[in-house]
Amino acid sequence: MAFIEIESLVVCYGRTAAVKGVSFQVPQGEVFGFIGPNGAGKTTTIKALATLLKPASGRARVGGFEVRVQPDRVRQIIGYMPDVLGLYDELTVNEYLHFFAAAYRLDPDRCERVVNDVLTLTDLGGKRHARIDELSRGMQQRLSLARVLLNDPQCLLLDEPASNLDPRARIEIREILKELQNLGKTILISSHILHELAQLCTRIGIIEAGRMVAQGSLEEIYRTLGLVRVIHVQVANQTPELLEQIRKLDGVVAVAVEVDRLAIQIQEDKLPVVGLADRLHGLGAQIYMFQPQAMDLETAFMKLTQGKTA
């Protein structure tokens, strides 16, 4: 059953429609990556799910609760991390978390334990009494994530959680998110760092100018787009005859001869990657390197979007 359901969602700022009939579903326990150019409507969609913007029409449900009808119930099961961190600079880490623990109406006797848990999870235990404005950007990001986890939400709405972070802080955030995924949380995450989404997300949605242009697993998107897969192969006995034979294989789109390797472009539905090595071997090729190129989300993104805004 889908935990997040959006159906023909329309959200307007005055007369301008920022989201124009977006529909998608996120099953429970999955990580859904939301990508799109600036101004595509990602943040607006996430804000609508977080009950911060009222949809003009369409349905948006979280955990079975319609955001327009039961916003209070939705707020109890979500954790929202905006693209700006939303930190009170003058508070200490401990005060900040206790403040939100009280705002989430946690039992005062449980507060201390919950705060300890989230501090441990986000590795901020050593900074408990530090003022927020003295923390590094990465730590502030982790603190924001700690705040999101205070009420043990079933669903996390994360808007650009890794933006402006250095590689180490980005990896740390990614590891925490993987841990949360293992805990069964449903996560909707928007990001510009495409290869990270590819590593983390089970499903991807690409939005442009307020409309969803593609969604599904990365493989499904590739298949939908008819994108070719590139396999890098190094062959000891490379001859023009062998190259010609490879080009004639069913499913091979092109073979490019590079300095030290062959780049074979294949259509996966006709010629699976798994079977290619056997087929090459059958043609007499002596293979000493066989490397399928990673799914390239950037290619899909560039092919699907044109940089339009809503």
């Binding site: 977080a50 009950t51 707020r75 700006v84 930190l87």
Partner: peptide, 14 residues
């Protein structure tokens, strides 16, 4: 202006 209102608004506080 500090952009803390959104995080306050998603809490159950009315």
């Amino acid at each position: 202006s500090r952009q803390t209102l959104d995080v306050l608004l998603v809490t159950p506080l009315s």
